[in-house]
Structure formats: structure tokens, C-alpha cells
Design a protein around this nucleic acid. Sequence first.
DNA 1: TGTGTAATAT
DNA 2: CATATTACAC
Length: 343
Amino acid sequence: MIKKIRNMDYNQEECGQYIEALEEERRKILVFQRELPLCLDLVTQAIERCKKEITETATDNVYGQSECSEQTTGQCTPVLEQFLTIKDSSPFNEEEVEEEFEDEQGNHDPENDSEDKNMKSDWLKSVQLWNQPDPLLPKESQQMMETVVKRDESMREDAMANSGERRRRETERKQRRCWSSQLHRRFLNALQHLGGPHVATPKQIRELMKVDGLTNDEVKSHLQKYRLHTRRPSQTVPNNGNSQKQHFVVVGGLWVPQSDYSTGKTTGRATTSGTTTTTTTTTTTGIYGAMAAPPPPQWPSHFNFTPSIIVEEGSGSHSDEVVVRCSSPAMSSSTRNYYVTKN
DNA sequence: TGTGTAATAT
DNA sequence: CATATTACAC
């Protein structure tokens, strides 16, 4: 894609220009939202970050840079870099880039965060993708879930007392598959390659995703949900409370808040100031869509581009194995405790 | 056989 | 209530 602008010094002015350029870029991409939702988002986020940085530096920020502080490797690469480096994956490319960064923003002060609701932080950090007693489970991931399922198919042919009903044989309900952010990401990726949720068909998606244990039905189901959520939010905004005129536009099935994030606001502003007026982005809907601005209020924030440490050690190799069964009911509510992938 | 959608389970 | 699985109709 176009987006060659890449190396540039991090000066304010340049940054300013850069932002402009980015914004223009964004406008262009906007047209192709459907095909390049990811791209759009990346640019958008880049803009945001950039602005933030400017403001911060300008104001001589008080708190050491809050969120962009790289806990990662220590080198503070300008956020921009991160976005820019991502190569856009063109439709059919054997190897995709994915696996980029998962979030895992370790810890930040418990309270305080206030309502920056964007907080891309919490959520369950990445999470293992799929548990299942597989040997392939990398070291981490055990810990709390030893209780896991074990009974799985252990029983089966043995007559075992049988007798009784208990498990409806064959028809046992499958274990729920958890769509981890990575999985979802692949899903979206495939989706966009195929041209949107409404044209993509489960099978194609599944094939494109190339995820090992994924079945058609699962994809189908996920697709269904996705489509559901991407429909028009609802006219009668039951919402209320604050009538915010936030329009969401559905473009090609991926929707995006129309208001741009680019204008004023510069995010930041941590000065307490309670006023919850802020955004709120009408929870309800949003989430699914393209990873537009606000981090999903309720979904496992996929698309959180946070610096983060990549937990994946190996670099590619047999990348995927993105699948993981989620057996433990645990996860869902465990927003607070993340599994530490590696400590 | 694969897809879309509703019903149902968790 | 949201998400995932199963059932059912094309």
C-alpha cells in the first residue's frame, strides 16, 4: 500500500506535517474502508498517537509519558514507527504478518486511569488461545488451569457403566470455542480479504484463516454474530442519558464512528476532572467492527495496538495454533487477573 | 454440500 | 445479556 512515509525524525513540526499527511491519507483510505479497515484504523491510531505525543511534549508533560512508555524493550520507539512498520497485508499472501503484537500491557495503576475509556488496557490480556490438553501448549498457560478438563474424551468406548444417560453420547455439546483476539483478528483479516462480512462465506473464511482446528460451523457462527453486530446500531437509541450525536456509519459492513478522532481533543487530559460526559461511545454496538477507535467496551479488545511485549518467543515458526479450547469458565470474568504469560 | 438464520445452551 | 453450538430450511 501506500504508506511509505516511514522514516522521519520525530520533530514536532515534522510531526505536525506528518499528521496532516496522515490525515489526508486517512481520508483516502476512508473510501476503501471496506477493503482496508485495518489500514484505516492503523492510520487513525497513528494520528492519534502522534497528536498525543505532540501535546505531551509540548506541555512538558508531567507524568512521564504514560501510555506510550515502552515497557517493552526499553527503547522508546515512537509509536508511529510501530504503526508504520506494519506492513499491510495484501490480499493473498502466503504468510501474513499477523502475530504482530498482542496486548499485554502489564500493569498500570489500579485506579487513576479514570475514564479514558479508551483504555485499551484491561481486557483479558491476550489469553491463551486455546487450551486443550495438548502437548503443544507452550510452557506458560498452565498455572491456574490445571483443573482443566481432563475428562474430555477420556471416556468413550469403555462401556463404563454407561447406564445412564448422563452424557448424551455423540451429541455431546462441543466445548465452546473462544475466539481469542488473535483468532478474531485472523477472522477479520480473512473477512476483509474476502470483501466484507456479507460476501465472505464461512468456508472461505475458514480457509483463509488457516487455523488448525477451526470448523466451518464455528466460523459460521462467529460470522453470524459479527454480522449481527455490524448492522445498524439501532435507531431508537434507547440510550439516552446523554444524547450524544455519535453517528455510526456502516460502510461495507464494518462500521465506524463517524466523528473523527482526529480533531481536537488530543486525548490526554488526565486532569482528573471527573465529568463523565465523555464519550462513552455508546457501548452497545461497537465492538465488532473494524477496529475503529474506541476499544470495545465489551469485547475482548481485539485490536489493541499496544506496544506490548510479544510473548511469542519463537518468531513465526509454526505460528498458529491459535486455537485453544476454552474450557474453563474462568476467563470471561477474569478481567482483572490476566494470565501472565511469562513472568 | 454449504450457507443463512433461528433456537437453544452456557 | 452475550457468545457459542445445534437445528433446520434452502
